[in-house]
Amino acid sequence: MTQLGTLEELPQSYRDALTERNLVPLWPAMRSVLPYKVPTRDTSVTKWDYQSLRPLLMQAGELTPIEKAERRVLILANPGHGLENIQATPSIYLGMQLILPGETAPNHRHTPSAVRVIVEGEGAFTTVDGEPCKMERGDLILTPAGKWHEHTHEGDGPIVWLDVLDLPLIYRLNGSWAIEGELQNSDKVRDKSYSDYSAAGVVPNINLTRGSDNTPQLRYPWSKTRACLVEMAADHSDGLLSISYVNPETGRSIFPSIGFGAIMLRPGETQTLPKRTTPVIFHVLEGEGSMAVEGHPSTDGTPQGFVEKDTLSAPGYTHITLTNLSSSEPLFLMTADESPLHEYLGIF
């Protein structure tokens, strides 16, 4: 590999002349922007421990009323990207959001697309363009780009969910903005999305075509997804058990920018995932296990344990091995990644 010239080798007068004219020489930075064989991977192996995160989130509920927060969220920032950049991966934002009984996170809409994964609590619902979506543990609630949405809690105790947005992507495209609105009125008892699509929305990870328009389904109940994985396990004694959340009308990804899925590991099982270009987020829905990542400077490949409600990140171009540490109970994980975007760009 040829050793390219450095910036320091250029005369200072020449460098000053370039700077005055908003010019930058490419060759000193060539290896950093176009490295050989493996790209720069800022996403580091990270675990957000819910047991230690939760008290800080509850304290936020004491310190900041919803009127002063609009959205009471602690951002899960990946240190590889810098905490100030609010990135879990290059284009995915994660946050743990808290709403207390009797509170409403006010109605607004914005250009980034969002999914809410319910972590704990009951008695809350999200209204999306007039459709009330019940929020139960493990459910995916969608608020696609441009749709009005508000969150209301009528139950007892706190409710917490994991926000997953394509905010870093939209922000860096200078396309991120929001509009506030009046509270929504709805006479619907339940979300139309559930009644229309309750028997659809998840398919095995086989021959999927991604990158479609957003799905019309707004709520993906965990009970349906879990039952699908359990039924798959009954038919297959080995092999990776995984599904993708898809648009029920097209079979494509629910968002063009982020792909969502779920994985089940049988009791005591270990599975190495297919090596892929995209980083991946894991959220533990049920069970306990470990994750080992090989092929990245942020880890030496030592397995990292996790339990229910923890959230983890792993970079792309690595070997990811998941193990179910229970000998009697299955392990269930929700996944989020950039595969629809990678496929659209032709780099997947």
Rank of each mutant, 00 (worst) to 15 (best):
T2V: 13
T2H: 09
Q3T: 14
E9K: 10
A17N: 13
N22D: 14
V24R: 12
V24G: 03
W27K: 14
R31W: 04
L34V: 04
P35G: 06
P35A: 09
K37H: 08
K37A: 11
P39M: 07
S44Q: 14
T46V: 15
W48R: 12
Y50A: 07
Y50W: 15
A60S: 10
G61T: 02
G61S: 00
E62M: 02
K68E: 07
R71C: 01
V73D: 05
L76G: 05
A77G: 03
G80L: 10
G82H: 06
Q87Y: 00
Q87K: 15
T89G: 06
Q97Y: 06
G102V: 03
E103A: 03
R109W: 08
P112Y: 00
R116W: 05
I118D: 04
E122W: 00
G123W: 00
G123E: 00
V128H: 06
G130Y: 06
E131I: 08
K134Y: 07
L140E: 04
L140D: 01
I141T: 07
T143G: 10
G146R: 06
W148I: 05
H149D: 02
H153E: 00
G157K: 03
V160S: 01
W161K: 03
D166W: 04
S176G: 10
W177G: 09
G181Q: 10
G181W: 13
E182A: 13
D191S: 11
S195H: 11
N205Q: 11
T209S: 14
R210P: 05
G211T: 02
S212C: 00
N214I: 14
R219C: 08
S223I: 11
C228P: 00
V230G: 02
E231W: 00
M232Y: 12
A234G: 09
H236V: 00
H236Q: 14
D238G: 04
G239A: 10
L240W: 15
S242D: 15
S242V: 14
V246A: 12
T250P: 01
P256C: 05
F260L: 15
L265F: 07
R266P: 00
G268T: 02
G268E: 01
T270A: 08
L273F: 10
P274V: 08
K275C: 10
T278H: 11
F282C: 01
L285F: 11
A292H: 05
E294C: 09
P303D: 13
K309E: 08
D310P: 07
L312V: 10
S313Y: 13
S313D: 08
A314R: 11
T318Q: 14
T321D: 12
L322R: 08
S328W: 01
L333I: 01
L333P: 01
S339E: 15
L341Y: 12
L341D: 04
H342R: 13
E343K: 13
F348T: 14
F348Q: 12
